[in-house]
Amino acid sequence: MKKFTLLLVVTCLALLGMSALADMSTVQIATDTATLGRGADSMMTNCRSCHSLKYVRYRDLTSIGIPKPKIDEWRGSESVDNPMLAVLADKDALQSFGIVPPDLSLITKARDGGMNYLYAYLLGYHNTSNGSVDNLIYPGTKMPDALGISSATTAAQLVDIHGKARDVTSFLAWAADPHAKERIRMGYYVLAYLVLLTSLLYLVKRMVWARLSTSDDHLTSWKK
């Protein structure tokens, strides 16, 4: 049965490997207030004219430390309890682009590669030989180069755009999974508790089983 255990472990590793198939540069997102604030700002200026964030309400932004005046500025006459919808109406988007730009609330979960996909996509714009702009990750995308990487010329601009892409990705990762930080923090406590409990349960098991006499135990001779 030891071989079976080994097989199980190998299978689990193979499954993990399968989920990491995407061949993209990895992005290290941040969860600090400054990054999320810059990301939210970027989202508001670069994305929200076309994309909604319908599962996030303006009020939710306070939980990542965005100051109230800033939120008031963004929401205009909308209530704080309203979802963050796109400026462009779906009807008009259809007319201009032929599709409704996808809602971004779950975008970092809804693509193979997750956050890495989004990051690589935002930075994937380049000039083609026939003079137009295309995307390496999603060729033929309808979305224009929002961060302007295809027209960047200096190293400083490139650094700035990479930073912006990372900020937006961090913000949208929060939007897709707003309780992630709390979940991971709680996870450490839960695991610490379980490891302690399981160690104690192991000792209890040992103590209880020690009551069995092993002197006449002919079963132990062939026990593995």
Binding site: L191, L194, V195, L197, T198, L201, Y202, V204, K205, V208, W209
Partner: peptide, 13 residues
């Protein structure tokens, strides 16, 4: 019961 509870602990981890 003691053996199963220990196994449960490992599973829960």
């Amino acid at each position: 019961t003691s053996k199963d509870l220990f196994g449960l602990g490992v599973f829960l981890i």
